[in-house]
Nucleic acid binder design. Sequence first.
DNA 1: CTGTATACATTCGCGCATGTATGTATAATC
DNA 2: GATTATACATACATGCGCGAATGTATACAG
Lengths: 206, 206
Amino acid sequence: MARKTKAEALRTRQQIIEAARHVFHEHGVARSTLEQVACRAGLTRGAVYWHFKDKFELFQAVRTDVFDPMHERLATILLTGRYGNPLDAIEAALHEIFLVLDECPTVRQMLEIMLLRCEYANEFADVQPESEHPGVEFLESLEDAYKKAAAKGLLRPGTDPKSMALDTWIFVGGLLHALITRGFEERFKSQVRTMIAAHVALRRPA
Amino acid sequence: MARKTKAEALRTRQQIIEAARHVFHEHGVARSTLEQVACRAGLTRGAVYWHFKDKFELFQAVRTDVFDPMHERLATILLTGRYGNPLDAIEAALHEIFLVLDECPTVRQMLEIMLLRCEYANEFADVQPESEHPGVEFLESLEDAYKKAAAKGLLRPGTDPKSMALDTWIFVGGLLHALITRGFEERFKSQVRTMIAAHVALRRPA
DNA sequence: CTGTATACATTCGCGCATGTATGTATAATC
DNA sequence: GATTATACATACATGCGCGAATGTATACAG
Protein backbone atom coordinates (compact mmCIF):
# COMPACT_ATOMS: atom_id res chain seq x y z
CA MET A 1 0.00 0.00 0.00
CA ALA A 2 1.25 3.40 -0.76
CA ARG A 3 0.07 6.69 -2.09
CA LYS A 4 -3.57 7.68 -1.49
CA THR A 5 -5.91 10.23 -3.02
CA LYS A 6 -5.87 13.74 -1.55
CA ALA A 7 -9.34 13.06 -0.16
CA GLU A 8 -8.20 9.81 1.40
CA ALA A 9 -5.19 11.57 2.89
CA LEU A 10 -7.52 14.08 4.54
CA ARG A 11 -9.52 11.24 6.01
CA THR A 12 -6.44 9.59 7.51
CA ARG A 13 -5.43 12.98 8.91
CA GLN A 14 -8.83 13.19 10.60
CA GLN A 15 -8.46 9.63 11.88
CA ILE A 16 -5.13 10.55 13.45
CA ILE A 17 -6.73 13.56 15.14
CA GLU A 18 -9.53 11.46 16.60
CA ALA A 19 -7.16 8.73 17.69
CA ALA A 20 -4.99 11.35 19.37
CA ARG A 21 -7.99 12.73 21.25
CA HIS A 22 -8.75 9.32 22.70
CA VAL A 23 -5.15 8.54 23.59
CA PHE A 24 -4.56 11.97 25.14
CA HIS A 25 -7.72 11.53 27.17
CA GLU A 26 -6.69 8.14 28.38
CA HIS A 27 -3.03 8.64 29.25
CA GLY A 28 -2.60 12.40 29.44
CA VAL A 29 -0.83 14.39 26.78
CA ALA A 30 2.68 14.11 28.15
CA ARG A 31 2.59 10.36 28.64
CA SER A 32 0.91 9.68 25.32
CA THR A 33 3.10 8.16 22.65
CA LEU A 34 2.88 8.94 18.97
CA GLU A 35 3.19 5.21 18.56
CA GLN A 36 0.00 4.73 20.58
CA VAL A 37 -1.77 7.34 18.48
CA ALA A 38 -0.67 5.80 15.21
CA CYS A 39 -1.57 2.31 16.40
CA ARG A 40 -5.05 3.41 17.47
CA ALA A 41 -5.56 4.96 14.03
CA GLY A 42 -4.41 1.75 12.36
CA LEU A 43 -1.28 3.43 11.00
CA THR A 44 2.38 3.80 11.84
CA ARG A 45 4.36 6.70 13.26
CA GLY A 46 5.44 7.54 9.75
CA ALA A 47 1.93 8.69 8.92
CA VAL A 48 1.70 10.84 12.03
CA TYR A 49 5.04 12.51 11.37
CA TRP A 50 4.01 13.18 7.80
CA HIS A 51 0.83 15.05 8.75
CA PHE A 52 2.14 16.76 11.90
CA LYS A 53 5.53 18.11 12.86
CA ASP A 54 5.39 16.78 16.42
CA LYS A 55 3.06 16.02 19.30
CA PHE A 56 2.45 19.68 20.03
CA GLU A 57 1.23 20.48 16.52
CA LEU A 58 -1.01 17.43 16.68
CA PHE A 59 -2.45 18.66 19.97
CA GLN A 60 -3.31 22.03 18.43
CA ALA A 61 -5.03 20.30 15.54
CA VAL A 62 -7.12 18.23 17.94
CA ARG A 63 -8.10 21.36 19.83
CA THR A 64 -9.28 23.47 16.92
CA ASP A 65 -11.00 20.46 15.38
CA VAL A 66 -13.25 20.26 18.44
CA PHE A 67 -13.71 23.87 19.48
CA ASP A 68 -14.11 25.78 16.25
CA PRO A 69 -17.67 24.51 15.68
CA MET A 70 -18.63 25.28 19.29
CA HIS A 71 -17.36 28.84 19.09
CA GLU A 72 -19.51 29.37 16.02
CA ARG A 73 -22.64 28.25 17.84
CA LEU A 74 -22.07 30.56 20.80
CA ALA A 75 -21.26 33.58 18.66
CA THR A 76 -24.49 33.30 16.68
CA ILE A 77 -26.56 33.27 19.87
CA LEU A 78 -24.91 36.25 21.52
CA LEU A 79 -24.63 38.37 18.40
CA THR A 80 -28.01 37.68 16.87
CA GLY A 81 -30.73 40.16 17.75
CA ARG A 82 -33.15 37.35 18.34
CA TYR A 83 -33.56 38.16 22.01
CA GLY A 84 -35.15 41.46 23.00
CA ASN A 85 -33.61 41.30 26.46
CA PRO A 86 -29.80 40.87 26.34
CA LEU A 87 -29.95 39.03 29.66
CA ASP A 88 -32.09 36.42 27.94
CA ALA A 89 -29.42 36.07 25.27
CA ILE A 90 -26.79 35.59 27.96
CA GLU A 91 -28.90 32.99 29.72
CA ALA A 92 -29.50 31.22 26.42
CA ALA A 93 -25.79 31.21 25.63
CA LEU A 94 -24.97 29.73 29.03
CA HIS A 95 -27.54 27.03 28.50
CA GLU A 96 -26.13 26.43 25.03
CA ILE A 97 -22.70 25.73 26.47
CA PHE A 98 -23.98 22.94 28.62
CA LEU A 99 -26.29 21.73 25.90
CA VAL A 100 -23.26 21.29 23.67
CA LEU A 101 -21.55 19.47 26.52
CA ASP A 102 -24.49 17.14 26.75
CA GLU A 103 -24.67 16.51 23.03
CA CYS A 104 -20.99 16.24 22.10
CA PRO A 105 -18.85 13.65 23.83
CA THR A 106 -15.90 14.97 21.88
CA VAL A 107 -16.24 18.39 23.52
CA ARG A 108 -16.40 16.78 26.94
CA GLN A 109 -13.35 14.73 26.11
CA MET A 110 -11.40 17.75 24.92
CA LEU A 111 -12.34 19.78 27.98
CA GLU A 112 -11.21 16.98 30.22
CA ILE A 113 -7.96 16.85 28.33
CA MET A 114 -7.39 20.57 28.65
CA LEU A 115 -8.39 20.84 32.29
CA LEU A 116 -7.10 17.58 33.69
CA ARG A 117 -4.77 15.85 31.28
CA CYS A 118 -2.43 18.52 30.01
CA GLU A 119 0.55 20.29 31.53
CA TYR A 120 0.95 23.88 30.43
CA ALA A 121 4.73 24.17 30.63
CA ASN A 122 7.48 24.68 28.09
CA GLU A 123 6.02 24.60 24.58
CA PHE A 124 2.54 24.17 25.98
CA ALA A 125 2.82 27.32 28.09
CA ASP A 126 1.69 29.43 25.13
CA VAL A 127 -1.49 27.43 24.52
CA GLN A 128 -3.02 28.16 27.88
CA PRO A 129 -4.21 31.76 27.35
CA GLU A 130 -6.16 31.00 24.21
CA SER A 131 -7.55 27.74 25.50
CA GLU A 132 -8.76 29.01 28.84
CA HIS A 133 -12.42 29.17 29.73
CA PRO A 134 -14.82 29.54 26.82
CA GLY A 135 -12.36 31.98 25.27
CA VAL A 136 -11.64 35.64 25.76
CA GLU A 137 -13.91 36.68 22.89
CA PHE A 138 -16.76 35.20 24.89
CA LEU A 139 -15.92 37.51 27.79
CA GLU A 140 -16.09 40.49 25.44
CA SER A 141 -19.42 39.38 24.03
CA LEU A 142 -20.73 39.10 27.59
CA GLU A 143 -19.61 42.63 28.40
CA ASP A 144 -21.35 43.88 25.27
CA ALA A 145 -24.56 42.16 26.24
CA TYR A 146 -24.48 43.50 29.80
CA LYS A 147 -23.85 47.03 28.52
CA LYS A 148 -26.86 46.79 26.21
CA ALA A 149 -28.95 45.52 29.11
CA ALA A 150 -27.80 48.41 31.29
CA ALA A 151 -28.65 50.89 28.55
CA LYS A 152 -32.16 49.46 28.35
CA GLY A 153 -32.56 49.63 32.11
CA LEU A 154 -32.79 45.84 32.30
CA LEU A 155 -29.78 45.41 34.56
CA ARG A 156 -30.09 45.53 38.33
CA PRO A 157 -29.26 49.07 39.45
CA GLY A 158 -25.93 49.61 41.17
CA THR A 159 -24.17 46.89 39.18
CA ASP A 160 -21.34 47.50 36.76
CA PRO A 161 -21.56 45.72 33.37
CA LYS A 162 -17.83 45.14 33.25
CA SER A 163 -17.58 43.35 36.57
CA MET A 164 -20.84 41.51 35.89
CA ALA A 165 -19.35 40.12 32.68
CA LEU A 166 -16.21 39.08 34.50
CA ASP A 167 -18.29 37.46 37.20
CA THR A 168 -20.35 35.49 34.70
CA TRP A 169 -17.26 34.47 32.81
CA ILE A 170 -15.67 33.18 35.98
CA PHE A 171 -18.93 31.50 36.91
CA VAL A 172 -18.87 29.59 33.62
CA GLY A 173 -15.23 28.65 34.07
CA GLY A 174 -15.96 27.43 37.57
CA LEU A 175 -18.99 25.48 36.42
CA LEU A 176 -17.09 23.81 33.60
CA HIS A 177 -14.28 23.01 35.96
CA ALA A 178 -16.67 21.60 38.54
CA LEU A 179 -18.61 19.60 35.96
CA ILE A 180 -15.48 18.08 34.51
CA THR A 181 -13.85 17.24 37.81
CA ARG A 182 -17.08 15.85 39.21
CA GLY A 183 -17.38 13.55 36.21
CA PHE A 184 -20.74 14.92 35.12
CA GLU A 185 -22.63 13.34 38.00
CA GLU A 186 -26.37 13.47 37.36
CA ARG A 187 -26.95 15.11 40.73
CA PHE A 188 -24.67 17.88 39.56
CA LYS A 189 -25.90 18.19 36.00
CA SER A 190 -29.53 18.54 37.01
CA GLN A 191 -28.66 21.59 39.09
CA VAL A 192 -26.95 23.40 36.26
CA ARG A 193 -30.15 24.77 34.72
CA THR A 194 -31.38 26.23 37.99
CA MET A 195 -27.92 27.55 38.84
CA ILE A 196 -27.69 29.39 35.54
CA ALA A 197 -31.18 30.78 35.97
CA ALA A 198 -30.34 31.88 39.51
CA HIS A 199 -27.09 33.43 38.36
CA VAL A 200 -28.77 35.55 35.72
CA ALA A 201 -31.83 36.27 37.88
CA LEU A 202 -29.60 37.93 40.47
CA ARG A 203 -28.63 40.45 37.81
CA ARG A 204 -32.15 41.41 36.82
CA PRO A 205 -33.87 44.37 38.49
CA ALA A 206 -35.81 43.47 41.63
CA MET B 1 30.10 12.07 53.43
CA ALA B 2 27.54 9.64 54.62
CA ARG B 3 25.10 9.11 57.44
CA LYS B 4 23.42 12.19 58.95
CA THR B 5 21.53 12.86 62.17
CA LYS B 6 17.82 12.12 62.18
CA ALA B 7 17.21 15.87 62.37
CA GLU B 8 19.50 16.48 59.41
CA ALA B 9 17.74 13.76 57.43
CA LEU B 10 14.43 15.50 58.02
CA ARG B 11 15.92 18.72 56.72
CA THR B 12 17.15 17.08 53.53
CA ARG B 13 13.73 15.54 53.10
CA GLN B 14 12.23 18.99 53.33
CA GLN B 15 14.80 20.31 50.86
CA ILE B 16 13.82 17.61 48.39
CA ILE B 17 10.16 18.57 48.77
CA GLU B 18 10.87 22.22 48.09
CA ALA B 19 13.14 21.43 45.18
CA ALA B 20 10.43 19.21 43.74
CA ARG B 21 7.89 22.01 44.02
CA HIS B 22 10.07 24.31 41.99
CA VAL B 23 10.95 21.72 39.38
CA PHE B 24 7.32 20.57 39.03
CA HIS B 25 6.26 24.18 38.63
CA GLU B 26 8.85 24.85 35.97
CA HIS B 27 8.61 21.75 33.78
CA GLY B 28 5.30 20.19 34.74
CA VAL B 29 5.05 17.05 36.83
CA ALA B 30 5.22 14.52 34.03
CA ARG B 31 8.26 16.02 32.36
CA SER B 32 10.11 16.61 35.62
CA THR B 33 12.98 14.27 36.32
CA LEU B 34 13.96 12.98 39.72
CA GLU B 35 17.46 13.81 38.59
CA GLN B 36 16.45 17.46 38.19
CA VAL B 37 14.83 17.45 41.63
CA ALA B 38 17.87 15.89 43.29
CA CYS B 39 20.22 18.25 41.48
CA ARG B 40 18.23 21.31 42.56
CA ALA B 41 18.38 20.08 46.16
CA GLY B 42 22.12 19.59 45.87
CA LEU B 43 21.78 15.83 46.15
CA THR B 44 21.64 12.75 43.93
CA ARG B 45 18.78 10.52 42.90
CA GLY B 46 19.84 8.10 45.61
CA ALA B 47 18.65 10.51 48.27
CA VAL B 48 15.30 11.03 46.58
CA TYR B 49 14.68 7.30 46.23
CA TRP B 50 15.61 6.82 49.87
CA HIS B 51 12.99 9.28 51.16
CA PHE B 52 10.27 8.60 48.57
CA LYS B 53 9.18 5.49 46.74
CA ASP B 54 8.68 7.25 43.41
CA LYS B 55 7.66 10.53 41.80
CA PHE B 56 4.04 10.08 42.75
CA GLU B 57 4.73 9.69 46.45
CA LEU B 58 6.98 12.73 46.28
CA PHE B 59 4.17 14.70 44.66
CA GLN B 60 1.78 13.80 47.48
CA ALA B 61 4.34 14.93 50.03
CA VAL B 62 4.73 18.27 48.27
CA ARG B 63 0.97 18.70 48.25
CA THR B 64 0.26 18.05 51.92
CA ASP B 65 3.32 20.04 52.92
CA VAL B 66 1.74 23.13 51.34
CA PHE B 67 -1.98 22.66 51.95
CA ASP B 68 -2.23 21.24 55.46
CA PRO B 69 -1.44 24.61 57.09
CA MET B 70 -3.92 26.40 54.82
CA HIS B 71 -6.74 24.00 55.64
CA GLU B 72 -6.15 24.69 59.33
CA ARG B 73 -6.51 28.43 58.83
CA LEU B 74 -9.79 28.13 56.95
CA ALA B 75 -11.32 25.66 59.38
CA THR B 76 -10.71 27.91 62.37
CA ILE B 77 -12.47 30.81 60.68
CA LEU B 78 -15.57 28.91 59.59
CA LEU B 79 -15.96 26.88 62.76
CA THR B 80 -15.20 29.56 65.31
CA GLY B 81 -18.24 31.37 66.69
CA ARG B 82 -16.45 34.68 66.31
CA TYR B 83 -18.92 36.01 63.76
CA GLY B 84 -22.50 36.62 64.81
CA ASN B 85 -23.69 36.48 61.21
CA PRO B 86 -22.64 33.25 59.42
CA LEU B 87 -22.57 35.13 56.14
CA ASP B 88 -19.84 37.32 57.63
CA ALA B 89 -17.87 34.20 58.49
CA ILE B 90 -18.23 32.97 54.91
CA GLU B 91 -17.13 36.30 53.54
CA ALA B 92 -14.17 36.31 55.90
CA ALA B 93 -13.18 32.79 54.87
CA LEU B 94 -13.31 33.73 51.20
CA HIS B 95 -11.12 36.74 51.87
CA GLU B 96 -8.79 34.54 53.88
CA ILE B 97 -8.26 32.25 50.91
CA PHE B 98 -7.01 35.06 48.75
CA LEU B 99 -5.09 36.58 51.63
CA VAL B 100 -3.20 33.31 51.94
CA LEU B 101 -2.63 33.39 48.19
CA ASP B 102 -1.18 36.85 48.52
CA GLU B 103 1.04 35.95 51.44
CA CYS B 104 2.30 32.51 50.44
CA PRO B 105 4.14 32.11 47.15
CA THR B 106 4.35 28.39 47.87
CA VAL B 107 0.55 28.09 47.87
CA ARG B 108 0.36 29.95 44.57
CA GLN B 109 3.04 27.68 43.16
CA MET B 110 1.26 24.54 44.30
CA LEU B 111 -2.07 25.72 42.91
CA GLU B 112 -0.46 26.45 39.59
CA ILE B 113 1.06 22.99 39.62
CA MET B 114 -2.25 21.34 40.39
CA LEU B 115 -4.31 23.36 37.95
CA LEU B 116 -1.89 23.81 35.08
CA ARG B 117 1.10 21.53 35.40
CA CYS B 118 -0.27 18.15 36.31
CA GLU B 119 -2.01 15.46 34.31
CA TYR B 120 -4.58 13.51 36.26
CA ALA B 121 -4.32 10.18 34.46
CA ASN B 122 -3.19 6.71 35.49
CA GLU B 123 -1.75 6.83 39.01
CA PHE B 124 -2.58 10.52 39.30
CA ALA B 125 -6.25 9.91 38.49
CA ASP B 126 -6.92 9.17 42.17
CA VAL B 127 -5.42 12.41 43.45
CA GLN B 128 -7.84 14.64 41.64
CA PRO B 129 -10.92 14.27 43.85
CA GLU B 130 -9.13 15.15 47.06
CA SER B 131 -7.12 17.93 45.52
CA GLU B 132 -9.97 19.67 43.77
CA HIS B 133 -11.06 23.14 44.75
CA PRO B 134 -10.45 24.12 48.35
CA GLY B 135 -11.50 20.64 49.35
CA VAL B 136 -14.81 18.93 49.89
CA GLU B 137 -14.78 19.60 53.62
CA PHE B 138 -14.86 23.28 52.76
CA LEU B 139 -18.07 22.73 50.80
CA GLU B 140 -19.64 21.07 53.82
CA SER B 141 -18.57 23.89 56.10
CA LEU B 142 -20.16 26.34 53.67
CA GLU B 143 -23.43 24.43 53.72
CA ASP B 144 -23.40 24.47 57.52
CA ALA B 145 -22.86 28.20 57.57
CA TYR B 146 -25.62 28.87 55.06
CA LYS B 147 -28.04 26.69 57.04
CA LYS B 148 -27.26 28.62 60.22
CA ALA B 149 -27.82 31.86 58.34
CA ALA B 150 -31.15 30.62 57.02
CA ALA B 151 -32.23 29.59 60.51
CA LYS B 152 -31.44 33.07 61.78
CA GLY B 153 -33.37 34.64 58.92
CA LEU B 154 -30.19 36.19 57.60
CA LEU B 155 -30.34 34.48 54.19
CA ARG B 156 -32.21 35.99 51.29
CA PRO B 157 -35.69 34.44 51.19
CA GLY B 158 -36.39 31.95 48.44
CA THR B 159 -32.82 30.63 48.36
CA ASP B 160 -31.79 27.12 49.30
CA PRO B 161 -28.71 26.77 51.57
CA LYS B 162 -27.53 23.64 49.79
CA SER B 163 -27.42 25.15 46.34
CA MET B 164 -26.06 28.41 47.73
CA ALA B 165 -23.14 26.51 49.22
CA LEU B 166 -22.53 24.70 45.95
CA ASP B 167 -22.71 28.00 44.11
CA THR B 168 -20.18 29.65 46.40
CA TRP B 169 -17.91 26.64 46.22
CA ILE B 170 -17.96 26.78 42.45
CA PHE B 171 -17.46 30.52 42.60
CA VAL B 172 -14.28 30.01 44.60
CA GLY B 173 -13.06 27.30 42.26
CA GLY B 174 -13.70 29.53 39.28
CA LEU B 175 -11.97 32.46 40.94
CA LEU B 176 -8.92 30.42 41.83
CA HIS B 177 -8.83 29.03 38.34
CA ALA B 178 -9.16 32.48 36.82
CA LEU B 179 -6.56 34.00 39.12
CA ILE B 180 -4.07 31.27 38.37
CA THR B 181 -4.56 31.23 34.64
CA ARG B 182 -4.51 35.02 34.47
CA GLY B 183 -1.19 35.05 36.28
CA PHE B 184 -2.43 37.18 39.17
CA GLU B 185 -2.68 40.34 37.11
CA GLU B 186 -3.11 43.37 39.37
CA ARG B 187 -6.18 44.44 37.42
CA PHE B 188 -7.70 41.12 38.34
CA LYS B 189 -6.53 40.86 41.92
CA SER B 190 -7.90 44.27 42.85
CA GLN B 191 -11.38 43.17 41.80
CA VAL B 192 -11.39 40.09 43.97
CA ARG B 193 -12.40 41.90 47.16
CA THR B 194 -15.37 43.58 45.52
CA MET B 195 -16.34 40.40 43.72
CA ILE B 196 -16.42 38.45 46.95
CA ALA B 197 -18.40 41.18 48.65
CA ALA B 198 -20.85 41.28 45.74
CA HIS B 199 -21.15 37.50 45.75
CA VAL B 200 -22.08 37.36 49.41
CA ALA B 201 -24.20 40.53 49.26
CA LEU B 202 -26.46 38.88 46.70
CA ARG B 203 -27.27 36.24 49.32
CA ARG B 204 -28.26 38.70 52.06
CA PRO B 205 -31.87 39.77 52.49
CA ALA B 206 -32.83 42.84 50.46
C1' DC C 1 33.11 -0.49 72.20
C1' DT C 2 31.03 -3.29 68.71
C1' DG C 3 27.47 -4.29 65.53
C1' DT C 4 23.80 -2.86 62.95
C1' DA C 5 20.76 0.14 60.78
C1' DT C 6 20.72 4.44 58.51
C1' DA C 7 21.38 8.08 54.97
C1' DC C 8 22.84 8.71 51.36
C1' DA C 9 26.29 8.39 46.63
C1' DT C 10 27.62 5.69 42.71
C1' DT C 11 27.08 2.55 39.15
C1' DC C 12 24.76 -0.44 35.93
C1' DG C 13 21.49 -2.24 32.74
C1' DC C 14 17.48 -1.71 30.42
C1' DG C 15 13.50 -0.23 27.78
C1' DC C 16 11.30 3.09 25.41
C1' DA C 17 10.15 7.32 22.88
C1' DT C 18 11.87 10.36 19.68
C1' DG C 19 13.50 12.08 15.24
C1' DT C 20 15.33 11.10 10.98
C1' DA C 21 16.67 8.66 7.02
C1' DT C 22 15.39 5.68 3.62
C1' DG C 23 12.28 2.76 0.83
C1' DT C 24 8.25 2.51 -2.22
C1' DA C 25 4.03 2.36 -4.61
C1' DT C 26 0.91 5.29 -6.63
C1' DA C 27 -1.70 9.91 -7.64
C1' DA C 28 -1.13 13.88 -9.94
C1' DT C 29 0.82 16.71 -13.50
C1' DC C 30 2.12 17.84 -18.06
C1' DG D 1 3.26 8.01 -20.70
C1' DA D 2 7.23 9.56 -18.36
C1' DT D 3 8.25 12.31 -14.42
C1' DT D 4 7.61 14.13 -10.09
C1' DA D 5 5.59 14.85 -5.88
C1' DT D 6 2.90 12.57 -2.53
C1' DA D 7 1.45 9.49 1.32
C1' DC D 8 2.80 6.73 3.82
C1' DA D 9 5.76 2.17 5.98
C1' DT D 10 10.12 0.59 7.63
C1' DA D 11 14.51 0.76 9.64
C1' DC D 12 18.01 2.95 12.29
C1' DA D 13 20.50 5.72 15.67
C1' DT D 14 20.38 8.13 19.84
C1' DG D 15 19.49 9.56 24.34
C1' DC D 16 17.25 9.69 28.43
C1' DG D 17 14.87 8.36 32.59
C1' DC D 18 14.00 4.74 35.62
C1' DG D 19 14.69 1.18 39.08
C1' DA D 20 17.68 -1.60 41.44
C1' DA D 21 21.96 -3.12 43.00
C1' DT D 22 25.88 -2.01 45.35
C1' DG D 23 29.13 0.74 48.05
C1' DT D 24 30.18 3.32 52.26
C1' DA D 25 30.74 6.18 56.09
C1' DT D 26 28.60 7.27 60.16
C1' DA D 27 24.88 7.79 63.85
C1' DC D 28 22.90 5.09 67.20
C1' DA D 29 21.48 1.09 70.09
C1' DG D 30 23.07 -2.22 73.30
